[in-house]
Structures are given as C-alpha cells and as structure tokens.
C-alpha cells in the first residue's frame, strides 16, 4: 500500500469576498506525479501555494506528511522545509551567487556544515547541468539557467514533495525544453511532484494523474492516458480542444 503524503479535505479559501477555492478534496500518494491544469484564474496556483501555506486557507484541513497546516508557525517552517517550491518568476536571491543561493537554506535552516552544503549544492547543480555557473550571480544567467538553479535550490533542502508553479511560463520557447528536461529527470528519480503547467507534452510524458480545475473547483481528475483519451466533462473537452 502506498501512503498518502498530502491530504486535503473540504478546503475552502476566500480572497476577501471572492471565493477562489471551493470544496477541494485531494489526496496525493507518495512518489506520484500530478499535473494541475486549467484556464487562468481557476485557482491552480492558489491551490499549490496553500500546500506550503504561502496562502492561508479558511476552511477545511490540509495535512502534509502527517502534519496539519494550522496557525501554529513553528510547524509551518518545518513543513515548508520539506516541501520544495519552484516559482514562475524564478525568485532567485539576486545578491547571492548561484552556489550561495543553493547553500543558504541548508546552512541556516537545516544547520548543515558549510562544506557539506556546498558539496550537496554542486551535486544538485550538476544534475540540472549548471555546475559550471556556480560562482556567477543570477543576473548573469539566462532565464532557463535561472529556473534550473531554482530547481536545484529547492532540491538542496532534500524535500519530500516538490511544487512547481508554472515553471516554464516566463521562459522563451527555446529555454522551456532545458527546464522540462530537468523536471523529467527529477520525476524519473521518484520525487513526489505537483506541477501546475500548460505543457501538455510534459503531462503526457511524466504525469501519473492529471487534475483539471476551473472556477476554483476540481472538475476532473483522471489517469493521464484516460484524461487525454476520453475526458468526461464538457468543460475539460473544451479546454483540451483549445490547448492541443
């Protein structure tokens, strides 16, 4: 049996009066790769930002790796350290070199010795093939390289889950591939991943399941093949016909 690493039950979230997420129920098993897609404004990003509590939910419960996300801050930082996140805008720290970007959190949050942290960082940078850029600053790299560095930075915390918030949306078409390759490699290594993306090719290649969201609700959830071969709801069909 495979255990459930993320459990979201009856979750609701409002921004002011506007309800962004409606009655979300989602269970993710360990080592599963899940792609979340849907039109913009459908609450995909908000959903995964709730999983490491960058956004607070108002109703329902979110349990990540056995810890429920609540107001208790101390827990939150521990959970965040176990959940890596990659952002659309990379969000590297521009005042630190690539290597320092990767070692900052392991050294200061996990109290890892500096030498060990650097070895680990170089190892992960090697995996995303930018180890030779380790001493440059983020401003000197291309978008694709920056995003790969951001992936390496998240991996350096040795997370159990990786969240990707539209990692390729801010990139030139040529750079999308290098980032997707890095993500495919990561998926093959067995990481639990939740990916918000519009890259359906990527979804077909690595995803175990695809979730389709619209207007704050999970409209459809299905095995990848099933999802693309015969979508059930009309909304999904419409979306797929437009995007493929």
């Amino acid at each position: 049996m495979s255990d459930k690493i993320i459990q979201i039950t009856e979750m609701n979230k409002w921004f002011g009066d506007f309800q962004v997420l409606k009655n979300i129920n989602l269970e993710v098993e360990k080592n599963k790769k899940i792609v979340v897609c849907g039109p913009s404004g459908s609450g995909k990003s908000t959903l995964i930002r709730c999983i490491n509590r960058l956004e607070e939910h108002q109703q329902g419960s979110i349990v990540v790796d056995g810890n429920e996300l609540t107001e208790d801050t101390k827990d939150i930082e521990k959970i965040r350290a176990e959940v890596g996140m990659v952002f659309q805008q990379f969000n590297l720290f521009p005042h630190l070199s690539i290597l320092d970007n990767c070692t900052l959190a392991p050294i200061w949050v996990k109290k890892m010795p500096k030498k060990e942290a650097e070895d680990l960082a170089l190892q992960h940078l090697e995996k995303v093939q930018i180890a030779d850029q380790a001493n440059k600053y983020p401003g000197q790299l291309s978008g694709g390289q920056q995003q790969r560095c951001a992936i390496a930075r998240a991996l350096c915390m040795e997370p159990k889950i990786m969240l990707f918030d539209e990692p390729t949306s801010a990139l030139d078409p040529e750079m999308i591939k290098e980032v997707l390759d890095a993500m495919v490699n990561l998926a093959k290594a067995g990481m639990t991943m939740i990916v918000v993306t519009h890259e359906m090719g990527f979804a077909k290649e690595v995803a175990d399941e695809v979730i389709f969201m619209d207007e704050g609700m999970i409209v459809e959830r299905a095995e990848t093949k099933e999802f693309f071969a015969n979508p059930k709801s009309d909304r999904t069909k419409l979306f797929l016909s437009q995007i493929l």
């Binding site: 930082e77 965040r80 959940v83 996140m85 590297l92 900052l104 200061w108 949050v109 951001a150």
Partner: peptide, 8 residues
Amino acid sequence: DAAKSLGM
C-alpha cells in the same frame, strides 16, 4: 515567497 518556501 522564495525565502518562506525554503523554510526560513
């Protein structure tokens, strides 16, 4: 966001 997501 990035700093928080790294557990700081």
